[in-house]
Amino acid sequence: MSLDAFTSVLLSGLVLSSLYALLASGLSLVWTTLGIFNFAHGVLMAVGAYVTWQISQSIGETYWIGYSIALMIVVMVMLGAVLEYVLIRPFYGNKNIVLVTVMTTLAGLTFLENGIQAVWGPRLKQLPPLIDGNISIHGLLTLSAHEAVIIVVSPLILIGLYYFLNYSIIGKSIRAVGQNQKAAKLMGINVSRSFILTFGLAAALTGIAGAFYGGLRLMNPTMGSEPLVKALIVVIFGGLGNISGTIAAAYLIGFLEAFLIYFIGLYWTPSLLFLFMIFVLIFRHEGLFGESARTTT
């Protein structure tokens, strides 16, 4: 493997990892707080990309795409709240909530995917890059400025998420709800509001991943399906209910995927990733970064 090839694989690994981390942290947050798995999470990536595209068309393409992304985040938070209200809320207290919400979130996925098709049509679209041009470092590696922004901004967003969850009172209340709903209620925490906030936050993170992705590749309504599967691997691999583990796993899986693609090609890479996950889970049931004994309450 030449140095050139190595650096380009490393870079594509970093870009992939960043997108997976954004996607998986939202998925993990919803799982930890609400105890459900959201199958509509991947399609939110497409929704985020299309909404960004729509906003940039409406306000005019002369404006920097960052403004459209900022507005999209607001839309995604609201959409997340609506999805929680429609797909999840009616089933709280149902003892089969995990299974029921598999179906309702799959319904949401179908509805949103077809909705995108109906609203924006089948024609492929692409978002402009966040920053034009290329960056070259000592002639060793060259990457687009857009990729550089993804690599730098994604970890910043995730650090922000980490600080929010661990150091702000609202973030702590979200973690509390995930660990013991009854105790959270008795402390005066509004559990429904925490759920809405969590869903909105997860939708926004995914929307950002979508907007980043839309500047890299062509957009289509199913653009989130494959990343959702990867995010699922990342979340389980990182240890369920552990945001830092999820983020670490996202980077590990991203690099692993980039190197696998280089060495064995696109065809077998997803299968090998799954094999790798199963192999790890056989020896570490709690995931790679999960704590060995999670207390259930």
Binding site: I169, K172, S173, R175, A176, Q179, N180, K182, A183, A184, L186, M187, G188, I189, E291, R294, T295, T297
Partner: peptide
Amino acid sequence: LVHVAQGNTLFPDMTVMEVLQLGAFP
């Protein structure tokens, strides 16, 4: 009106300090 529940296990993965800070959530 504050109710301290029976056998409350509180939040297993939070520190004592974090739980106390959350106690002042109102």
